[in-house]
Design a binder for these strands. Structure first.
Length: 603
RNA sequence: GUCCCCGUAGUUCAAUGGAUAGAACAAGGCUCUCCUAAAGCUUAGAUGCAGGUUCGACUCCUGCCGGGGACGCCA
């Protein structure tokens, strides 16, 4: 089966006229750290310090307001290099630093930090810049957009999707959203396992154990049950196992009956998967599963042999990596098995090739479990030997463990199914709504429960570092309090309630913001930092940093909200506070959107 | 045996080599006349062990201990 026709035209390169148009109409405001870095560099040049290649002074937020808003360690770094006392050097840098229209006089602290405090007048102007940029919330797009294929989710067809599948799906989707937001051209590709060994079991089961009546009513559930049943049988009975293998061989040889059954089950699974993806608000541009590359595998293998990348070994065709320190003593990469069938290494190499030739990918990202790291090291190595220069990025994630602290596996025991997890999440959310907002219309209760339940599950996954292993726990996945999606969603509701109260009145944000209260200034500064946080997410592919930021933003907002009454204030104060509310609403909404988490409507 | 990832409060998690290691949950104490309680304020509580590099180490290096994982015909 070809999941979809390959009609991917590379869009025409942006014309010069277009670029000018963009440049004129979208004036991107540099972030405060960018500005400070630039001026620090100027200052360093001015005082005649020889800078190492590609050196750029690091400017980071301080961890305590008493140190100002931003700090740099450049005097300590260069002090060592030039054998100068860091504090003396810091003083020289400050003397040469152009602080006009940006910061208060910088201060030297501790072993040689230079601390900067953004002038409040500048911060005030910045708020109105942000107001003019509703779509991007101040974020500058990537300077050189790339074509990025992102490979994530990739479940096996006809096996139940359990909670272990959630990480790749949710992290991958979020990374795709973030990359798109930064103007990269992203192609999401669901490389489903639609050709593997499990089809032998499905075929055998279909012919010998299919419960027709159940199948009519609930085809997807019946398919999953079928897989489980045959899997259990095959484990106990070697003749069943052999029969399954025979069915698979027949399928791969093109047996019409088996092909027909295969196609039917793949289509059914596709539908079942889509129900979950719809619920998760995850979508794919492509569904090029393993089966899409069958035809290429024999010639690819020949090519690898010809190019001396792979060779025969114990009847199989394998790639060895004698020159690679870590790969040399590991098992080889098996391209073709002894029985003549192809391993997933072959498919994955063909897939890389296809993504580069047809999709013109500059980068390919794989959001796949950490246990597969050896496999990807190997196929990336093979790809490089084939002359592929695109950036191949393995974005691993840690395992979800059972209560025995072992990895969840479909074959052993029964990890909770993804569908059940989502249903439970929505049920719990619904119960709380029933308790707290009994007067809502039933329909609204349902939609809010869906939004909150699904959001909670997604956030639980996204808010921790992707490499951390964790033991699956209902309470963890379904937490609704504290650092969770419902808290952030609730913050949106809270800020939007102000605009609701305004009714039809157009909010007056004034022409000139005045930040008086500390909570106002803190919130304003935090809002400006969205533009710092988002582009950095693609450096380490860690959406949890965005979660951290949004949580901090929500907290700063709550502090502001407690201390600074909006609607009862007047004049500049009221306008400034309304402005802060507007920007908070937008930034929270945009941030949650980048995580793939839905947000309540404004009205 | 080789290689990879992870060891942080009672628990679950944070922390681009930066200053006093942040949260949440659980525990104790407060706060609903408000644009607000899926909330806010508050008290207590942690870097596995031993070295090393550094002005500075949860972070980098070495060794050990503990957990998980990969290592030829599953994907």
């Amino acid at each position: 089966m070809r999941a979809s026709p390959l009609v991917h035209e590379r869009p025409a390169p942006t014309s010069i006229a277009n670029r000018l148009f963009l440049a004129v109409n979208l004036i991107y405001v540099p972030t405060f750290p960018n500005k400070i870095t630039q001026r620090l560099t100027d200052a360093l040049v001015k005082i005649g310090i020889e800078l190492p290649d590609k050196f750029s002074p690091a400017v980071s937020p301080t961890n305590d307001p008493k140190f100002g808003d931003y700090q740099t360690n450049v005097a300590m770094v260069l002090g060592k290099r030039t054998k100068t006392n860091p504090r003396d050097l810091a003083q020289h840098i400050i003397d040469a630093f152009d602080q006009d229209d940006l910061t208060n006089p910088p201060e030297i602290a501790g072993p040689g930090f230079i601390n900067f405090r953004i002038r409040t007048s500048i911060l005030q102007l910045h708020l109105h810049d942000l107001l003019k940029d509703p779509d991007r919330c101040g974020v500058t797009p990537a300077p050189s957009p790339e074509r990025i294929v992102i490979d994530f989710s990739a479940p096996n067809v006809a096996k139940p999707m359990h909670v272990g599948h959630i990480r790749s799906t949710i992290i991958g989707d979020s990374l795709a959203r973030i990359a798109r937001f930064l103007d990269h051209r992203v192609i999401t590709d669901n490389h489903i396992g639609d050709w593997g060994k499990q089809f032998g079991m499905i075929l055998y089961g279909w012919k010998n154990h299919l419960d027709k009546s159940t199948f009519e009513n609930e085809p997807i559930g019946a398919l999953v049950a079928l897989y489980k049943k045959v899997n259990a049988l095959a484990k106990e009975d070697e003749t069943v196992n052999a029969a399954c293998k025979d069915e698979l061989v027949k399928l791969q040889a093109g047996d019409p009956e088996n092909l027909a059954i295969w196609k039917k089950t793949v289509d059914l699974s596709h539908k079942g998967l889509n129900t979950i993806y719809t619920r998760l608000d995850v979508s794919f541009d492509e569904w090029l599963g393993e089966s899409a590359y069958n035809e290429r595998l024999p010639s690819l293998t020949e090519e690898l042999i010809e190019k001396l990348i792979a060779r025969e070994s114990d009847g199989a065709i394998c790639a060895f990596f004698p020159d690679d320190e870590t790969l040399a003593d590991k098992a080889p990469c098996i391209v073709r098995k002894t029985d003549g069938s192809f391993g997933y290494a072959a498919t994955d190499i063909a897939t890389i090739e296809h993504r580069i030739n047809e999709f013109k990918a500059d980068e390919i990202w794989y959001v796949v479990g950490a246990p597969q790291s050896l496999h990807f090291d190997q196929i990336f190595n093979v790809a490089r030997q084939m002359g592929i220069t695109a950036e191949l990025v393995f974005i691993p994630f840690g395992s979800i463990l059972g209560t025995d602290r072992k990895m969840l596996r479909t074959r052993e025991g029964d990890p909770p199914q993804l569908d059940d997890l989502l249903t439970e999440a929505v049920t719990r959310a619904r119960a709380i709504i029933e308790e707290k907002n009994p007067d809502l219309p039933e329909e609204e209760k349902d939609s809010v429960a869906e939004m909150i339940g699904i959001g909670a599950v997604k956030y639980a996954e996204l808010s921790q570092h992707r490499l951390t292993d964790y033991v699956f726990s209902w309470d963890k996945m379904l937490a609704l309090q504290g650092n969770t999606a419902p808290y952030l969603q609730y913050s949106c509701v809270r800020v939007n309630s102000i605009f609701r109260k305004l009714g039809d009145t157009t909010p007056d944000f004034g022409n000139q913001a005045i930040l008086d209260a500390p909570a106002e200034r803190t919130l304003a500064l935090k809002l400006s930092r969205f533009a710092e946080v988002v582009p950095a997410l693609l450096k380490d592919h860690s959406p949890n940093h965005l979660c951290n930021y949004l949580y901090e933003l929500a907290r700063d907002f709550h502090a502001f909200f407690e201390n600074c009454h909006v609607l009862t204030s007047e004049g500049h104060t009221r306008a400034t506070r309304l402005l802060l509310c507007e920007l908070t609403s937008r930034t929270l909404t945009k941030g949650l959107h980048l995580l793939g988490i839905q947000v309540p409507n404004r009205m």
